[in-house]
């Protein structure tokens, strides 16, 4: 059982720390050859524009897109969620897999970044939103809201993908870690790719 963590740029080591706390093995994904035998995938926050330039060397996103479409359990945060969104306001579409319209840096610059209440599934906690995007619209009934900040949707699930706009990996509370472990382990039953 191995989790692939996309490691082109961004907060991937923070996700690795979460995985260590969950006792899950992981592999950093920088090249196509790293994509072997993973059971689940994390696409971290960072700058989506940087990641898009780095991935095109080997068309890594194209390969990742195929894995996701085959059912690989996938967690995305912040920039990672932008990369999988079907519509991107003020940005480019990469590998559309979540039927949402998302706006980059929607709250503003860093001076509008904040820690805020999030109700994720049955749990409430405080998480960081860093130059965060906003989910503007759900584009199909396949997308289920699973996280809220006040009335705003800040996390969705569409089949095997969970997309969040905030950073649970900077908090690593027990509810999140327990959920993460169960969620990523579901990839064991899907089989490794």
């Amino acid at each position: 059982m191995k989790v692939g963590v996309l490691a082109l740029q961004g907060s991937f080591f923070n996700h690795c720390k979460s995985l260590e706390l969950c006792d899950l093995d992981y592999v950093l994904i920088k090249r196509l050859s790293d994509l072997k035998s993973i059971n689940s995938l994390i696409i971290p926050g960072g700058e989506s524009t940087s990641m898009k330039i780095i991935e095109k060397e080997e068309n890594l996103f194209f390969a990742i897109d195929k894995y996701i479409k085959k059912g690989l359990p996938t967690l995305t945060t912040c920039a990672g969620t932008i990369i999988l969104s079907k519509k991107v306001i003020d940005g480019d579409i990469s590998i559309p897999n979540i039927d949402i319209s998302i706006q980059r840096n929607a709250y503003g610059r860093q001076n509008q970044s904040f820690e805020g209440d999030v109700k994720f599934l049955d749990n409430s906690d405080i998480y960081c939103f860093i130059r965060a995007p906003k989910i503007i619209e759900l584009l199909s009934s396949d997308v289920k809201p699973i996280a809220f900040h006040n009335e705003e949707i800040v996390g969705v699930q569409q089949q095997n993908i969970i997309g969040l706009t905030y950073h649970p990996e900077l908090t690593n509370d027990n509810f999140y870690l327990n959920w993460l472990k169960e969620y990523l382990k579901s990839g064991e039953h899907v089989g490794s790719f």
Binding site: A7, L8, Q9, G10, S11, F12, F13, N14, G45, G46, E47, S50, C78, A79, Q110, S113, F114, E115, C128, I130, R131, H167, L170
Partner: peptide
């Protein structure tokens, strides 16, 4: 946490 958080997002870049 919010201030250090942006630095975390810049990592590897």
């Amino acid at each position: 946490k919010v201030k250090k958080g942006l630095a975390e997002m810049l990592k590897g870049g």
